[in-house]
């Protein structure tokens, strides 16, 4: 396969990683052979590209590793994998809860870069107020963010979900590339992105600023909004 990352981008990412990364980050990728129970007929063609992008990415820093589990039922269960491909960013402040379903390309590639940096440093740039409010969430809470790679407004929505997951491991931040999973998208009537669904009961479309996003997450987690 031809290389997917351009040379000038590789150089930029290399420099970025060498100045920003602290501890090691493991990217855990789940794949299945064609006809696998979690592959859709729409996305089997994407899988080799997803693997290739990640291979190229981890080669840019010795602090990054890529682990690939293919057709591994046991590991899929351990990580709670729902669809293929599934990518978990495992670092200082994550616990199988920063997830990408489908290819992290287009605009979402920059989400992945920023996630890796945060996971390596164990910090996020959410405001202190948001961090404090997130502590109130004590039960499992799932934030689904439906995107398309060509949507420039989507990375912010994905990043907010992932940062929240890093701040509180009761939260799962899940990106879903809508083209690859049309049935999943249809289940939530996704016709515009970004679309965010929290615990199946609160949803919103479009990019919201951090405080309004938080309000929806708290609502979805069954918390009363304090003024």
């Amino acid at each position: 396969m031809e290389k997917l990352l351009k040379e000038k981008d590789e150089k930029y990412i290399k420099d970025l990683f060498s100045s920003k990364l602290e501890s090691e980050v493991e990217l855990v990728l789940f794949l299945q052979s064609e006809g696998g129970d979690k592959v859709t007929k729409f996305n089997s063609q994407y899988l080799p590209y997803t693997e290739e992008i990640l291979k190229e990415l981890v080669s840019l820093s010795d602090k990054l590793t890529l682990t690939v589990y293919k057709d591994d039922k046991e590991k899929e269960e351990e990580y709670g994998v729902e669809q293929i491909s599934a990518l978990f960013v495992e670092g200082k402040n994550t616990n199988k809860n920063v997830i990408y379903y489908g290819i992290p390309s287009g605009h979402e590639f920059s989400s992945l870069l920023e996630d890796i940096i945060d996971a390596s440093r164990g910090t996020t740039e959410l405001s202190d107020k948001t961090k404090a409010e997130l502590k109130r969430i004590t039960s499992p809470t799932e934030i689904l963010v439906f995107v398309t790679p060509s949507c420039p407004y989507c990375p912010r929505a994905v990043r907010t979900a992932h940062q929240m997951a890093m701040e509180n491991n009761n939260i799962k931040g899940v990106m879903i590339e809508a083209n690859e999973f049309p049935e999943w998208s249809q289940k939530y009537s996704v016709y515009a992105v970004p679309k965010v669904v929290i615990n199946d009961n609160v949803q919103f479309e479009g990019a919201l600023p951090e405080d309004a996003y938080l309000e929806n997450v708290l609502k979805g987690a069954g918390k009363i909004i304090l003024e």
Binding site: L5, D9, I13, Y46, Y49, I53, I103, S105, F109
Partner: peptide, 9 residues
């Protein structure tokens, strides 16, 4: 090309 177009930002 649609989905391998990568924006680094």
């Amino acid at each position: 090309e649609e989905f391998t177009n990568i924006f680094v930002g």
